[in-house]
Design a protein around this nucleic acid. Structure first.
Lengths: 322, 322
DNA sequence: TTTCACATGTCAACCGGTTGACATAAATTA
DNA sequence: TAATTTATGTCAACCGGTTGACATGTGAAA
């Protein structure tokens, strides 16, 4: 059986209350007593039961993370930072991979509440989950509007879209196509597309957007329908990579015949595909701010922004070089 | 204030015990009563407090995951599967990114015990953590020997090393170099290297291994010191990618002048670098088996293997094609 | 000598569930 | 009609901590 406070007290020859006092640094404790207690804890291999503690103090120091999947480089890196920063602040992290499925996200939301998490950070992609409407606990959304009451943190998607599109134009591209993942209007990521469209129009160019909804045929369709394409702005690096592969298959040289720019700039894509120009999201900063806002909510501080937008950085590489 | 069983009971006009019975499906409950209770729970937006429940039943349905980082494609994908399968089995997952740091790993180990996790799955890379010596709770290691008592699950690293090396030999390579990450003797991953060395010797070739310990100069050193190199077996795809970049920089054509094969074959690398030949680890299978063994330990079943080795699959692509 | 800050102890209530013991009453079944 | 089975209630103990109230005994400062 696991030792409890009582056992520690017995071994140390003190009362349970004293042990608790040592554990929580409350009231007066003598140096020798403190030492005796610590020695006893070590001897018994005692670990205070956080479950019991949480029950009483009504706080678990747990944060739920709901994201589509850790397998994706962007979310993997974001989750890494979130966990890291949370840990440094004394919080633990319950991981939930919603896989873009609404039913899973709902299930996780319930689970997290039953487990009394102190707050939730969500970057999943389902819309219309009513549970978010009146969150009875602190929530922060990342790159996603969950409800009016829930603060959002995202990078400056509009600025990113502008920078990417403008770069292609500056490099002399005339037929620039945008390709993005499944569209949900509630996503700040759509601002990338809006920026693309506006920049195109401002330059007397016609915007043309394709949507990749896990139907691989878009890539070949895109080239078939636009043989004159000379610039592609993909809404993430993985899609950009697919585009590059299709171009290679068709013998189209990058960057001389076609210029490509992606989005995200994660460590992994930068390592595996350093030649790809991209718009780097400040992933760590997003994590820092999301947690900052979440903790303010948890601590009932009111002074947090309902929407935070962080600037992005253009990383120019071979795929857009002349 | 969050509603509790008592509140639900009041609204439903029944006793707390009856509510608990409905919740746990114990004893006799009439249909109309069950309904009343459910209606009351919905009305109050009641979520049973798992913390209180855990305290009493002495089980949290929590599993701790300790891995270096979710940011790496291999771990990201592994953790994705682990969380997924755990969720399907009714378990939740506490995420710990140890970043390869011993102190962090120790801290996490303590944290997980304090939080009464039912078990731990660890794939971090520190050796000599005494806490693993007598684990007072179920642990499974992935690709890593933690202690004699802890079962390990890994893919067949020796076989993978053999397959990779043999492929290069079959393709006619004469000067084949192996490059791996930091070596720790306790890691099954070193079997990749051992296989490489033995296959080389069996073919009257001289093995030569480089070690990449986050000092980027190895890549250029490798080529400088071995201008005649025509085959490289990298111990993971990220390293393989670096090798390819260095080769490109030097104008060495892949695959005609140099053949390269990596290791891991994650979704992400396959998407971003489909041209790279690699040895695919059965990541999902590893996760399934690790959880199977962990649950057997949790449920005090004794019939699990202390070491499980799962076969790998060679994926041949452009970087080793003639 | 009188205070009082320091050090520790005892005791009981509480956090929000679970569970077993026991009681009661209605509906079935023998 | 008697014996069960079904349905529900009351009550109290328990899980392992935390905390406040209160008591007691030091030694040092006033």
């Amino acid at each position: 059986m696991k030792p409890k406070i009582e056992d520690v007290a017995k071994v140390a020859g003190v009362s349970p209350t004293t042990v608790s006092r040592v554990l929580n640094n409350r009231g007066y404790i003598g140096d020798k007593t403190r030492e005796k207690v610590h020695k006893a804890m070590e001897e018994l291999n005692y670990y205070p039961n956080e479950v019991a503690r949480s029950l009483f103090i009504k706080k678990t120091f747990l944060i739920g993370l709901i994201f589509p999947t850790t397998s994706n480089p962007f979310y993997g890196q974001l989750i890494f930072h979130l966990e890291n920063i949370a840990a440094s602040l004394g919080y633990k992290v319950l991981l939930c991979n919603s896989q873009g499925r609404e039913d899973k996200e709902r299930g996780y939301l319930k689970m997290l509440q039953r487990n009394q998490v102190d707050g939730i950070i969500a970057g999943a992609h389902n819309k219309g989950i009513k549970e978010y409407e009146d969150p009875n606990l602190p929530v922060v959304g990342i790159d996603r509007y969950l409800s009016k009451k829930i603060p959002v943190v995202s990078s400056d998607n509009y600025q990113g879209g502008e920078k990417a599109t403008q770069l292609l134009i500056n490099k002399g591209c005339k037929t620039i196509i945008h390709i993005n993942g499944p569209i949900s209007l509630e996503t700040p990521a759509n601002k990338r597309r809006k920026a693309y469209e506006e920049v195109m129009k401002n330059n007397q160019l016609t915007p043309l957007t394709y949507e990749y909804d896990s139907n691989d045929s878009v890539f070949s369709r895109l080239f078939n329908e636009n043989p004159e394409v000379d610039g592609i702005f993909a809404s993430d690096d993985l899609i950009a990579s697919r585009v590059m592969q299709e171009a290679r298959r068709r013998g189209i040289d990058i960057p001389t015949q076609l210029k490509v720019i992606g989005y995200d700039g994660t460590e992994t894509t930068r390592l595996l595909l350093p030649e790809l120009s991209t718009v780097e999201q400040p992933i760590r900063d997003i994590a820092v701010i999301a947690l900052e806002i979440l903790l303010k909510q948890i601590n009932n501080e009111e002074d947090f922004q309902s929407e935070t937008i962080i600037p992005v950085r253009l990383i120019e590489s071979d795929t857009t070089r002349k």
